[in-house]
Structures are given as structure tokens and as C-alpha cells.
Design a protein around this nucleic acid. Sequence first.
DNA 1: ATCCAGCGTTAACATGGGTCAAGGACGCGC
DNA 2: GCGCGTCCTTGACCCATGTTAACGCTGGAT
Lengths: 270, 270
Amino acid sequence: MPFREILNRLMTPGERVLWEACLARSACEYRKGEDMVREGEHPRVLHVVLSGWVQKYKQLPYGRRQILAIYMPGQLCDLDLFTVERSDHSLAAVRAASVAEISRSDACSLLRRCPNIPQIFCWSELVAAAVQREWMISLGQRNALERVAHLLCEIYVRQRGVPDPGDGECDFFLTQWQIAEATGLTQVHVNRTVQELRRRCGVELGQLRLRVPHFAELAAIAAFSPNYLHFGEAGAGVDRVAPLFETSDMPMFAGLPSERDRASPLQLLS
Amino acid sequence: MPFREILNRLMTPGERVLWEACLARSACEYRKGEDMVREGEHPRVLHVVLSGWVQKYKQLPYGRRQILAIYMPGQLCDLDLFTVERSDHSLAAVRAASVAEISRSDACSLLRRCPNIPQIFCWSELVAAAVQREWMISLGQRNALERVAHLLCEIYVRQRGVPDPGDGECDFFLTQWQIAEATGLTQVHVNRTVQELRRRCGVELGQLRLRVPHFAELAAIAAFSPNYLHFGEAGAGVDRVAPLFETSDMPMFAGLPSERDRASPLQLLS
DNA sequence: ATCCAGCGTTAACATGGGTCAAGGACGCGC
DNA sequence: GCGCGTCCTTGACCCATGTTAACGCTGGAT
């Protein structure tokens, strides 16, 4: 269950129409590497990936940069930026990407009309935060082989879902240099590592495509466990989260005056 | 302006009484290293640090662990856990710590009665997420000296605020082994690094206390810039965020039916 | 057809930080 | 006062990863 499916599952058909219309209306095209938000700017719009991938990154004195997150179609990139005066990071297209830029007023009217939308936002942020924590584990504790293997596993599972329906392929838009920036390694060493993975479990990392003939082997190298993606819960989320907060069991919404509207799960964001 | 001051600034006196009462009522004591939430558990309460520090961490196969975040008095540790079925990380005391454990129903009634509380939650989460991104930079891009220096700068500024009123001291509850777990280094190498910092800029890392006689020098080594802590904004936050969302300018709340109550800034969390 | 930029590949060499092992200082319980 | 555990310190050694510098392939622009 890739991210898009979760989106669809969480929305009513009517909401989906509104949502898609809003996205389509504000779609923008970016070229590879082009910035959408730059560190220090005051952010004015909310970015939602339509196609391609988007990277959140920080630039460091003298050239190096760290990629902090990768956003895939359907994901919200920068919900936090609405509360913040100056962004502390940048946002750019990984390759050519299409991105919806929702203005504050559009976001406002969406929220007014679609009670399930906040829930979407909630899951999006929740998963993004969990992924970020897992990246910290890679950066701090895993060696090069494990880091790259883990990143490939994550990207594969985020697109294909788990359990995997199976032909072992998915989109892959990062260059080896970008893998290096995400994993805190050198481009040269990423190259060595990718070759090792090719040798050990037949991973193919080609033009825009990742092939993983034996996912289990790759996952074993990375000690990859998809729990942190909270996928199973997102599936259940529609049924579980929504009723819960109608019955005033969820602390943040219960007691808020908006109960009849079922707005607000967003308040639970991490 | 350390975190506690921000808390006070954001609350009305009446709210502060309720808040403090709620914290006091549910206070728990933990010994050094004792777990409050363990990975895989279903989280039932919200943890707020009263005194001492709290660490969020993940345990890895064979012994190593990564500290993901450090929470100081006043901070909320795990707002996200309310939405999640099973926690993907653990929470433990750094040293002996006192922690309030707010039940869902208590959190609920707090939110009902204190319109500014969600705002507090919002800032807490926002800053926590920004700190986490900065830690990724350390783990991915900085060398040992820069990592440790940066951590010391952050801990100093988070307690003392910036600009610093000045005598160059603050609490410091981490052992060198815990610094190692937070920075992705070895305890042995942290020791070497701390000595280097002692030599280079007179940093003293003693029993429960950190002394930084020349903060500027330490900050220079780390290339430390406190922007990511969003401190200035938190000061302004009371005046700016609140009116903004009353005038329906903030997308997430504007249009929500609860406007007369001024609930909901939490919706903007990242 | 030619050029060029971007990307992947390779090799020789350098080094930051890990590993292992031992010892010392301090504080705490008995 | 003794013993023990926790934390800090030190030294010798070594490996994973960084550095530098080529080279070649490919695809797009002219």
C-alpha cells in the first residue's frame, strides 16, 4: 500500500474530487535540483508532490549538503513551514517533478469542506517523522553497506508496500551522488557499495529504475524492518482513528468544540 | 529564553495554574536509564519533563543504540504516540528524572479549558523536529570535533537562551558514553574529542555541569548557528501566531468552526 | 557530426575514528 | 575502611571510508 493508496483510502469520493481539483489548479513544474523553498525564506505555500520526488536538504559551508528527507507523490513536504517565520531548510526537486503549491486560503477552504483532510495531513507528518528517525539510525550506527541497503529497502517498500506483490521493481530517481548526500557517504564510496550490493544480491540500480530480485537478502543486509513506516496502521487508520475521536477518546480533539464537524486530527501531529 | 520561559510566556496565569496542577498530579520519578516507553509498546500517556532530562532512543541488534533526542524540563516527549498503534522508539530517563504522565482524559480536559495549550504543544513539536534535523546534519556531515562541539552549544543555548546572559555555565546530565550514543561516535573517541575541546577553548565537562568560558570559540568550531531553535520566533509567537489565526489568516484553523474558542494551532505541527 | 555536461567507474593513497585492553579516579553501600 | 561499579583516561593498532584524479559512457544541445 503505497502512499497514494492510503490517501485514497482515507478520503471520501467527494473529498477526493475537491482535493484533486485543488492540486491540479496549483500544479507547478520544477527541473532537476531546482529549489522550491530556500533556507531562511518565509514560506508561503504548502507543497504536495504530484509526480517525481522532492528532497528536503540543508546546505553546509563549503559544498557539502545533507538530504534530510525524500518525499514521494501524494506526500506533503512542509506542513511545519506554516507556523515558522523562516525556514531552516530547503526544498528542491530530485529530478524533474510536478508539485502542487497550495496557498493558505486554498488550504483553508479545503479544511473547511473536507473533514478527513486533516487526518491525511496527520498520517503524512507522522510517517515523515518516523522515517527521519530511522535515517538518524543509519547515519549514526550503520556502516556503508547497511546504509545504502536500508535506503533501497525503504524506497522500495514506500512505493510497493509490504507485503510486496512482487516483480521486484520500482521507480528510483536518485543519482549515486544524491544517495551519498542522503547517507552521509562519499559518491565514490556509494559506488563501491552499490557494486557490492549488486554482487551480493543482484540489485540493479539503473536509469530511473531499481530492481531488487531478492528483497529478503537485501533486507537482511540492512536489518530492515518496515515497522517504522506504520503502514499497517494507516490501513486501519480510517476505521480506527476516526471513530476514536468521535467518541471523545482521543485527547486532542475530544472536547474541542468542533466535534460535529469531525475536524482536527491534525492536532496529533508529531 | 529557555524552554520554560517560553511556556510561561505562552500561557495566561489561569492556564498556568491548571497546567501546573495537572503536571503535579501525575508526576512520576524515574531512575537513571529507566524506560518510560519501550519500542513496540502501545503508548498510553503523554510524557512531560519536570526535572532532569529524558532521552528518546532506538536500540539496535547487538548492543549499540542511537539517542534520537534529548528533552529538557517543560518539553513534551511524545505527542505523536497518541496517534500510533505501536511506538517505534523508546523513552528513558537520562539520569534520575521527574516526569509528568498525562492521561488521555486529562489532556482532553486541559485542551478544553486552555485555549493556549495547543499552541504550546505546537511550538514544542516544531522545535523538536528542527533539532532532529540538525542532529542529522551532525551525524551525516560533521566530524567528531564538530559534532561534540555542536551538541554542547545546543545544550547550552537550549538552557541559557541566546543572547546569553553570561557566566558560561549550565546543567549537563550526559555521560561521555551517552554523548557517544547521541553523536554516533565511540565513547573512547568522545573522550579524545572532549579533551581536544578542553585544550582548544577551555570547555569543562564535569559532574552534572558544563562550563563554557568562551562560547564564541566553541560555536566557531561547530559552525553553530541557533536559528534552527526558532527561539526568537517563540518569543514573538504569542503575539503573532495567535492573532493571525483569529483573523483567519492561518490556513488550518481559519474556517474551522472553533474560531470563537481559539483552539487548534496544533494542527500546524510538523 | 561534434562537443560537452552529467554520471558512473576505477585505482592509489591518506586518515579519522573504531577496537581492544588496561588502569585510575570517584562515589556509594556495607 | 573495604570493595565494587561507574565513569573517565590512555596507548597501540587497524580498518572503513574519504580524497584525489583519471577515464569512459551516454544523451542532449548546437
